[in-house]
Computed example of a mutant assay.
Amino acid sequence: MSTPAAPVDLRDLGRSGLSVSPITLGTSSLGRDVSPGAAAEPEAVSLAAAMLHGPYAVVDTSNVYAGGHSERVLGLALADTGIAPGRQIVTKVDADPETGVFDRDRVLRSFEESLTRLGIDRVGLLHLHDPYGVPFEDAMGPGGAVEGLLELRESGAVDAIGIAAGKVSVVSRYVASDCFDVLLTHNRYTLLERRATVLLEAAKERGMGVFNAAPFGGALLARGSASGATYAYRETPAEVLERVRLLEEICARHGVELATAALHFSLRSPLVDSTVVGISRPERIADLEARRQHAVPDELWADIDALGPPPAAVAD
């Protein structure tokens, strides 16, 4: 398996002490509906191995992705092929899938579950993932989820901790706490949605690293206005589809595919350290790298800016 000598275009991830490439590979669908020993398992493991030996520094997963199969399949790939030098896996702690409990003890259990599935003894970065089911005051208080994360960082079990969620109204309070080293937001900073701008600015002011996930809004900005694709997992409003059609016209004038422009919107932002893109096929890695290296003219961004602020594409 051919492997670059080092991950491409490394840069610091804020104050975390970690390094990232401009693109991070996401694994939310990896291993979905693939039970142990299933016929589809070798294909899933092959995809995971391609991620672990690809050009980018970080592979992103979570305790709950694909019901835990994402981490399990990554673990099988690690055992089979190892991981290329300079690459690492980042994961997230999640609420108990049966009870919804998300406190200190659950954070520690979630972390141990992840390490067991992955077959490793530590990760550099661990996120608090989607803490929507617990009041902020409880998460931050004695015995709360954040206490568990702080313990893991202070003990050296992880190097850095992050907050990973979509809703700006929720995430902003965690960013303002100054407890976290890294922010991961999704679907809220794209060609179609800018509501996370203030959140990203607040994170950067604190020296936090920033991951911006879902630059295609799930699928719409990858497939286009005629595809019937959703934005942020929901049916796309008519005014948002009209905006996409206008974006397609601008991109066509400049000879740039919509998906490439959508990716570069995030890549070019000084507020973003790494853009998280989920993939479902190994060949998508080469496609992403080709899009990353594609030259996008400055005039395209000027034409997009001339459209004015985009309509709200996702509810917060």
Rank of each mutant, 00 (worst) to 15 (best):
R106L: 13
L128W: 11
D159T: 10
L183C: 08
W301D: 12
R87L: 04
E41C: 06
S169A: 15
M51D: 04
V272I: 13
G218S: 03
E289I: 09
T91Q: 07
E239I: 06
R292W: 11
D181C: 03
A315T: 07
T230C: 00
V198E: 14
T190V: 10
A50L: 01
I285C: 10
A79I: 00
E154I: 09
V272W: 09
A6Q: 12
V123N: 02
L128Q: 01
G156C: 07
A5R: 05
V45P: 00
R173M: 01
E201F: 13
V168A: 10
F111V: 01
L247T: 11
A40L: 06
K167N: 15
L10W: 01
V34L: 14
S46N: 03
I23D: 03
A302E: 15
G124D: 05
S16H: 07
P270S: 13
A165T: 05
E147D: 13
D33G: 06
L10P: 06
R268V: 14
A160G: 02
R291H: 13
W301K: 12
H127T: 00
E235W: 02
G67M: 06
V107G: 13
A95Q: 11
G82K: 10
G31H: 01
D316I: 05
H127M: 00
G228D: 02
A157E: 08
V276F: 15
L300H: 04
V34H: 04
V272N: 03
R106K: 13
A66I: 02
R72I: 05
L118K: 05
Y189G: 12
D305Q: 15
V175Y: 00
P270N: 11
V59N: 09
P55K: 09
S110N: 05
L246W: 10
A145T: 13
V158G: 00
F102I: 10
L300Q: 11
A49F: 00
R243Y: 12
D103K: 08
L149C: 06
V170M: 14
S266F: 12
T230G: 09
H186T: 03
A49P: 00
N63M: 05
S29R: 15
R194N: 13
L125R: 09
L150P: 05
T24Q: 10
A77C: 09
F111Q: 08
D80F: 01
A77V: 07
D130F: 06
E257G: 12
S274M: 10
A160Q: 01
A84R: 01
A160C: 04
G217Y: 03
V101E: 12
V296K: 11
E299N: 08
V175P: 04
T116I: 03
A164T: 10
I250S: 10
D273V: 14
Q88W: 07
V90F: 06
D159W: 00
F136L: 14
G54Q: 02
L241I: 14
R153P: 08
R32S: 11
E248T: 13
V146T: 11
S177W: 07
V73I: 15
A40P: 02
R243Q: 12
E112Y: 06
D9K: 07
F111M: 10
E154A: 14
R253F: 09
K167F: 15
S28K: 08
P311R: 01
L184T: 02
D305I: 04
L199T: 11
A229S: 10
V296C: 12
A139S: 15
